[in-house]
């Protein structure tokens, strides 16, 4: 718990903002990041769903190789990959242990491994697509495939409000800490301390709920004056927003390569 406490002390808002910016915009200079969001969605529509229904080892291995390549191309942070790998191994591992316990044998290993590969392809595909889109691009992209305007508004609004909210939460949390008193006995495995911090993190939302309610009122009032009332459903506004989208040569090239690869892979999988 000392670790957590230290983290709390060091977690400065400035630091958090920097990390967020880096997460959101770190990878928007790669070749994949330059593609049109619609290209990426189309690509993802295949790689995000199809693996569920493919049971052919060769095809799956090919798909995995392909998505690993694209993931490398997006220069995604190692931390995200590490989290992904741990998650995949964890789930597979639990299932393996449990099924051995229920009288299974090592025969389950192969299908479980296959399942893990499928999950990996899908996850890598979503990392490829979504980590290389800046929030702005994702907003427009979502709008172009018919997601309601409120969603893309909310994404940008989220980036606007997050630092404000984090700062306020931090203030309130500090207020509770400084004016309250931490338990004197730490308890077994620091459980008293943990419980104290968890309690603070929950009740800190009380002041925040009230102050955010005040904010929300002004914001919605201001949105009204900014003409947003009918704009989310106005096709002319949508057209304006989408006017920056353009499918270029690189988009067709990317799709063509992917298509050729998949076709070749299926043929290969079918005959061998």
């Amino acid at each position: 718990m000392d670790y957590a406490k230290n983290m709390m002390d060091k977690l400065s808002i400035e630091q958090a903002k920097i990390e967020l910016l880096n997460t959101a915009y770190a990878n928007d200079r790669t070749a994949i990041a330059r593609l049109d969001p619609r290209t990426l969605f189309l690509w993802y529509a295949f790689f995000g769903i199809a693996p569920w229904f493919i049971h052919n080892t060769i095809i799956l291995a090919g798909l995995l190789a392909f998505t690993v390549t694209t993931t490398i191309m997006t220069k995604v942070s190692r931390l995200i990959l590490l989290i992904l790998i741990l998650g995949l191994l964890g789930q597979g591992g639990y299932l393996l242990i449990a099924s051995l316990f229920f009288g299974g044998d090592l025969a389950v290993l192969q299908p479980l491994l296959l399942l893990t590969v499928k999950l990996a392809v899908i996850s890598l595909a979503s990392i490829t697509v979504f980590c290389s889109m800046s929030p702005e691009k994702l907003s427009i992209g979502l709008l172009s495939i018919g997601v309601p305007g409120q969603v893309s508004f909310s994404i940008s609004y989220g980036y606007r409000m997050l630092p404000v909210l984090l700062e306020e939460y931090n203030h309130v949390f500090m207020c509770y800490r400084l004016r309250g008193k931490a338990p004197e006995k730490k308890g077994l495995l620091y459980w008293r301390m943990a419980a104290y911090f968890v309690k603070l993190s929950v009740i800190s939302f009380y002041p925040l709920l009230l102050s955010t309610a005040k904010r929300a009122r002004t914001t919605v009032e201001a949105l009204e004056t900014k003409g947003s009332k009918n704009a989310f459903t106005n096709p002319a506004v949508k057209k304006l927003k989408l006017s920056s989208l353009r499918m270029g040569g690189q988009d067709y090239f990317f799709l063509a390569i992917s298509f050729t690869f998949i076709t070749a892979l299926f043929l290969l999988g079918h005959y061998y």
Partner: peptide, 23 residues
Amino acid sequence: GKVWIGVDDFETLPGLAESVVVV
């Protein structure tokens, strides 16, 4: 459901169904 769909011949593998439900 995901494991069910994702794993080929899910039913025939001994212990898998139980373990999924239990986990």
